[in-house]
């Protein structure tokens, strides 16, 4: 009788307990990135750019060369890294407070220039690390510490759908929105992240993957209830799918 492991964690994922709260899906997103890089065999020449927020400790969990960028400026730093080292695979890993609020100018222009970098955008609808303040992606009616009565359309405007905005820009080769709330969605997310890195490897242009994730602590929900909220509230407003795929467009 012998036991064969079904689950294999990629070597690039450092065997260390994470600082994330129970049920935080950053862990799943980290693993998907690690698996994509391992599958494509580009771990040795990958340079990560981590952002500000909970995702800042990316360098503690992925055994990659990492640059730490100022708040929101990860796409600008990634541009510099990629232009200096064109053979490297460069990706940024950013949250929604970082990318959609303070880093809005950087991400828009990076995508519009068609820089050959990949952006992994983890959208959990709040500023997680600083205590759950309202982010540009906070859903209407959602209560946070800076909108205790719930986000209001007249006062704070509507949540920003980043994947659709990025898809409309000229330099974007690949843009998708995925979730990691169910097994099926995790498998799709894995494929999308792998595609994004493949497009960079092929030099097609800018690639962007938005990952819908939970923040149970700041949503004031249990991890399982938070996971259900992704399906009931987030996915109806942030539809999943591929919004730009240059390979598909070329075929038509």
């Amino acid at each position: 009788m012998q036991e064969i492991p079904v689950t294999r964690y990629p070597e690039v994922l450092i065997d260390r307990p994470t600082h994330y709260c129970p049920g935080c899906q950053h862990g799943i997103a980290h693993r998907l990135v690690a698996e994509a890089l391992t599958d494509l065999g580009v771990v040795e020449r990958t340079i990560a750019v981590s952002s500000i927020g909970c995702s800042v400790f990316l360098y503690n969990y992925l055994n990659l060369d990492t640059v730490e960028a100022p708040h929101g400026r990860a796409p600008a730093v990634a541009t510099g890294v990629k232009r200096a080292r064109p053979e490297a695979i460069v990706f940024t890993y950013q949250g929604d407070g970082d990318l959609a609020s303070i880093g809005m100018a950087e991400i828009i222009h990076c995508a519009n220039r068609g820089e050959r970098v990949t952006v992994i955008f983890v959208n959990n609808t709040v500023y997680g690390m600083t205590g759950g303040q309202m982010a540009p992606t906070t859903l209407l009616g959602q209560k946070t510490t800076t909108c205790p009565g719930g986000r209001c359309l007249e006062r704070e405007g509507a949540p920003i759908r980043m994947a659709e905005i990025i898809a409309s820009l000229g330099g974007t080769a690949y843009c998708a929105r995925v979730a990691v709330n169910t097994v099926k969605n995790v498998m799709r997310a894995k494929k999308a992240i792998r595609n994004a890195f493949q497009y960079q490897l092929d030099g097609k242009g800018f690639s962007f993957v938005e990952v819908l994730a939970t923040c149970p602590t700041n949503w004031r929900l249990s991890p399982t209830a938070a996971n259900e909220r992704v399906a009931t509230e987030m996915i109806p407003y942030f539809p999943l799918g591929t919004f730009q795929d240059c390979a598909a467009t070329e075929e038509v």
Binding site: M1, E3, I4, P5, V6, Y20, G23, H26, V186
Partner: peptide, 19 residues
């Protein structure tokens, strides 16, 4: 191995047992 796929803390390892 769905449990291992959903675990955000990489705490689960699944083994198949072959006779």
């Amino acid at each position: 191995a769905f449990c291992a796929l959903m675990c955000p803390d990489y705490a689960i390892t699944v083994f198949k047992i072959e006779e």
